[in-house]
Design a protein around this nucleic acid. Structure first.
Length: 822
RNA sequence: GCCCGGGUGGCGGAAUUGGUAGACGCAAGGGACUUAAAAUCCCUCGGGACUUAAAUCCUGUGCCGGUUCGACUCCGGCCCCGGGCACCA
């Protein structure tokens, strides 16, 4: 018997699988199920080609592969593609550092990572490989951008934007995490710049309501998206200004507190501020404060906690009370939300309360709790709950929730607001898809005609890392002719945020070679939506929200027939070591290559699935890996062996059921096998891979515990099939050693016989007052009365029943009897 | 502060319509085989009491209460850990 040589076996089968892997066009069909089964689109988040795969990738791709192989054997027509999210900053930074071109660097990385992925034995359809930085791909990224532009959903606007000094480019709101750049952790600054936006806010309502449709998504992800979109219902109320013609519009979700307004606050950037203070004695002071606030970073602003502010000298009239209230500016009011102005009700809003305390502004209570009385003197924090209206004219005495509706109706206009901002998509970087726009002195802004796409990214560019769009330095690129009038014109030199590229790649996989359109509708329709999407939770908002937006837009353009891209989503947990995320600086990185070399891909795959449930964090353990390696060796010996001498020699301490006739073993093994088929199948369907593997181990352990008589007659084919999604190489090798000529994953998935898994005898627990006292073995067909009688007759139970009155006996079929005493 | 997850042996984790807590794996201890080691195979393995041993009993799923014949599982209150959002009016 040859030893289990993982290196030899894995290399051999990876080579054999090459032609089968790249052939979704001619899907692999189980022999038993000839007609093409229903489609199943199995997708993992495509990687950024950073140079090396890490354990997170291994986990991601292994999960996807188990599902792909399982579904194929189940008869589905599986689409299981892979590609590269290849535009992005690291390539450019590497270029600056190493004097290589981003294109060359990226190509090298892809080549290396391709080899690494192939060595994992993942059954990708490499014939559909997609790379976002190639002209044939980004041509269509640009094309889609132009579609947005045509529909008025891509526009340029000057506004306050997030600037990352580290990346030397602007960022979208979604890309700022707690004031820091999501990529490089630099403190994000605010800048006034003219930039390109996609009008994702036009889809805010649909992006929100359609979350309901995503029954196959984890609840936390849906909650995060809901919060990010941040819908709120309120009213806009106009306040007249004294000594001015214009009026002040505020947004509030609490019109019930309108009578409690004691001052107003404008965002420092609100244009009305100039109108109010220009030429007054307040101008200098207000503008000083405004400049100070503007210069502050987000985190400095947070520290000020809404205490920074100054009176503008102007007053507004409360439409409900006709009271004159002062107008202030403060950093706690944001220009980007609502109208950039609020009515301040210190008694019922904590931020207003704190500001009022800090600046000695009056407090007026208009809602009081049902149980106690609230006065401006006794109040120590804002009362934000519901209550009874007071000091509110004819609304006095009403419950506040009723007054909210009535006051809103009377004084304002109902309005829905979203926290979601439009998506800033322009980047002042080189390594991305050029924005296909031309600026003409006569015609203004002109989109590049579709026939002229792609706007090619020139190779000859200087990388200084000093800021500004690198493309601006390339004359040949910048200088062009206006497509409309032919006059000399300039190209846009910003590139698209790479999240544009990743927002539609799953559609390109459906038709990757199309040079007429991004994808043919009928081909996209054939596979969309993605049946199972697998990736890290870090994209809960970013990529997943953008992709939903793109899909809805393309649906509206009638380019596809689905309006949600991902039917089911599986968010895998991180791979950690020594309690921390693997990172170079911590020195706790485990290189997948090392594991594959030492133990093989099958072991790596098995361990990464076995060590933890998919959605939870996975603590890497070298010892645990060895355990999985041992298991595969056990399977190997089981299949290739005669039993080893040591195994035969277990003479003295063997279990009772040994040395019986082989027939008995056969029956027992068959039963256990069918139970295992059932359990493993159900576990895989629920993505409980860790317990599926445990059940395979149990079965193997069971086989080992049977005598060699049992072994000799054993057909391990079904076991190999059950194991094949997890450890494809070893299963395939042993499958062929059994004499089979065709690939194991062209086999149909094993089925179980419900009659065979039935136990003839059941183990029934006998409890007295809920505590276990005895175990009974009872024929499966025994009726309740028999079981009751046997339980009562139990000697061990009797001990606890002495001098007790039995009140009732509870029989749980197939499980237990509980005798309750008084 | 708000919103989500999650607390089970020495460790990773099982136990999803309330029904034998600790499957499976790791580590540890003991044994078989071996000149020896490795590999392999077998046994033990939450804590405690009692005992030569077997047996038996008590206790135990973050903490405190509750519902129930019966609670890791359901309810109320609290503590701790992880993640997300963070002046959104």
């Amino acid at each position: 018997m040859a030893q289990y040589n993982h290196q030899e076996i894995e290399a051999k089968w990876q080579k054999c699988w090459e032609p089968i892997n790249s052939s979704t066009q001619q899907p692999i069909q189980p022999k038993a199920q000839k007609p093409l089964g229903p489609k199943f689109y199995d997708l993992v988040m495509f990687p950024y080609p950073s140079g090396n795969i890490h354990m997170g990738h291994v986990r991601n791709y292994t999960i996807g592969d188990v599902i792909a192989r399982f579904k194929r054997m189940k008869g589905f027509n599986v689409l299981h593609p892979i590609g590269w999210d290849a535009f992005g900053l690291p390539a450019e930074n590497a270029a600056i550092k190493n004097q290589t071109h981003p294109a060359d660097w990226t190509e090298k990385c892809i080549k290396h990572m391709t080899g690494q992925i192939k060595r994992l034995g993942i059954s990708y359809d490499w014939g559909r490989e997609v790379t976002t930085c190639t002209e044939d791909y980004y041509k269509w990224t640009q094309w889609i951008f132009l579609k947005f532009y045509e529909q008025g959903l891509a526009y340029r606007k000057k506004s306050q934007v997030n600037w990352c000094p580290g990346c030397q480019t602007v960022l979208a709101n979604e890309q700022v995490k707690e004031g820091l750049c999501w990529r490089c952790d630099s403190q994000v600054e605010e800048k006034d710049l003219e930039q390109w936006f996609l009008k994702i806010t036009a889809y805010a309502e649909r992006l929100l309501t359609d979350i309901e449709k995503l029954s196959g998504w984890p609840e936390p992800v849906k909650i995060m998206q809901r919060n990010w979109i941040g819908k709120s219902k309120g009213v806009e109320i106009n306040f007249r200004l004294t000594n001015h013609n214009s009026q002040l519009t505020i947004y509030t979700t609490r019109p019930d507190t309108l009578f409690g307004v004691t001052y107003m606050v404008l965002a420092p950037e609100n244009p009305l501020v100039d109108e109010l203070v220009n030429g007054t004695k307040f101008e200098a002071e207000v503008k000083k404060i405004r400049e100070k606030i503007k210069s502050e970073t987000t985190s400095q602003r947070e520290e000020s906690q809404g205490k920074e502010g100054v009176f503008t000298g102007a007053y507004a009239i409360n439409p409900a009370t006709n009271e004159k209230v002062p107008i202030w500016i403060s950093d706690y009011v944001l220009m980007g939300y609502g109208t950039g102005a609020v009515m301040a009700v210190p008694a019922h809003d904590q931020r207003d309360f704190e500001f009022a305390k800090a600046h000695n502004l009056p407090i007026k209570v208009v809602i009081t709790p049902h149980t106690s009385q609230l006065t401006p003197d006794t109040i120590t924090e804002a009362y934000v709950d519901e209550g009874t209206m007071i000091n509110s004219g004819k609304f006095n005495g009403l419950p506040s929730n009723e007054a909210l509706q009535k006051i809103g109706d009377k004084f304002g206009t109902w309005k829905t607001n979203f926290k979601l901002r439009d998506w800033l998509v322009s980047r002042q970087r080189y390594w991305g898809a050029p924005i296909p726009i031309i600026y003409c002195n006569k015609c203004g802004l002109v989109p590049v005609p579709a026939k002229d796409l792609p706007v090619k990214l020139p190779k000859d560019v200087k990388f200084t890392g000093k800021g500004g769009s690198p493309l601006a330095g390339n004359k040949e690129f910048v200088e062009t002719k206006c497509p409309k009038c032919g006059a000399p014109a300039r190209r846009e030199t910003d590139t698209l945020d790479t999240f544009n590229c990743s927002s539609w790649y799953y559609l390109r996989y459906c038709d990757p070679k199309n040079d007429q359109q991004p994808f043919a509708k009928e081909k996209a329709d054939q596979f969309m939506p993605v049946d199972q999407y697998i990736g890290g939770i870090e994209h809960a908002i970013l990529h997943l929200l953008y992709s939903r937006f793109f899909t809805k837009f393309l649906f509206d353009q009638k380019l596809i027939s689905v309006d949600e891209p991902f039917k089911n989503l599986l968010t895998q947990g991180m791979v950690i070591k020594d309690g921390a995320k693997m990172s170079k600086s911590k020195g706790n990185v485990v290189d997948p290559d090392d594991i594959v070399n030492k133990y093989g891909a099958d072991t790596a795959r098995l361990f990464i699935l076995f060590a933890a449930p998919v959605e939870k964090e996975l603590e890497w353990s070298d010892k645990g890996v060895e355990g999985c390696y041992r298991f595969l060796n056990r399977v190997w010996r089981l299949a290739t062996g005669p039993l080893e001498p040591a195994n035969k020699l277990r003479g003295s301490n063997e279990r009772g059921n040994r040395n019986v006739q082989s027939q008995v073993f056969e029956q027992a093994i068959t039963k256990k096998l069918h139970q295992t088929i059932k359990a493993v199948t159900e576990d895989i369907e629920k993505f409980f891979f860790n317990t599926a593997i445990a059940k395979l181990m149990e079965f193997v352990n069971f086989l080992y515990s049977c005598s060699d008589i049992g072994h000799r007659t054993l057909d391990i084919g079904p076991l190999l099939k059950l194991l094949s999604p997890f450890a494809p190489h070893l299963s395939e090798e042993l499958w062929h050693q059994l004499g089979n000529q065709t690939s194991i994953y062209q086999e149909a998935w094993p089925t179980y016989d419900p009659l065979l898994i039935k136990e003839d005898e059941l183990n029934i627990v006998v409890q007295v007052n809920g505590r276990v006292r005895d175990n009974l073995t009872i024929p499966a067909e025994a009726d309740q009365e028999t079981i009751k009688a046997k339980a009562l007759a139990s000697e061990k139970a009797q001990k606890f029943l002495a001098r007790q009155t039995i009140i009732k006996i509870i029989v749980v079929p197939n499980k237990l009897v509980n005798i309750v005493t008084g």
